[in-house]
Amino acid sequence: MTLAWGEAAVSVVWAFLIGGTICLIGQVLIDVFRIPPAHVMVLLVVAGAVLAGLGLYEPFIRVAGAGATVPLSNFGYVLTRGVLDALRREGWFGLLTGVFEIAGGALAAAVVFGFIAALVFRPRG
């Protein structure tokens, strides 16, 4: 039990450091390289997809845990993972059907939360 909690504590620290570093890189892109925030978001998702294609994102998750799964790059990873699994399972048609296989959950949740918020909350400004 003590060991498990110790491991959890270490994984939280790793998530903090690696997740923080990804965000720091994002801020550098915005402030130093003058890339608009919306473009940085797109870059990050594309980067996640590319790393996933290279087979590098899974090892990254094993090291960083939430430091890899919470940033937006993970969205690119789960989209790619879904397509790849479907391609292997169903062949060419999987290229289309696989996209939302894993990522669909987060999108569905976002739509539902957006709907609830639109009904319940009003912008405060």
């Binding site: 498990a4 959890a8 994984s11 939280v12 620290v13 790793w14 998530a15 903090f16 450091l17 690696i18 997740g19 923080g20 570093t21 990804i22 965000c23 720091l24 994002g26 801020q27 550098v28 402030d31 130093v32 845990g65 939430a66 430091g67 799964t69 919470v70 940033p71």
Partner: peptide, 30 residues
């Protein structure tokens, strides 16, 4: 832009959210 300040806060805020995510992962694993 106040670069040092922006970088530090980006790191702290982003890192903290990921750390909270890791806490949830540990919780669900348990």
């Amino acid at each position: 832009p106040p670069l040092a300040r922006n970088l530090i806060f980006a790191f702290l805020v982003g890192g903290s959210i990921c750390a909270i995510g890791q806490l949830f992962i540990a919780l669900f694993q348990s």
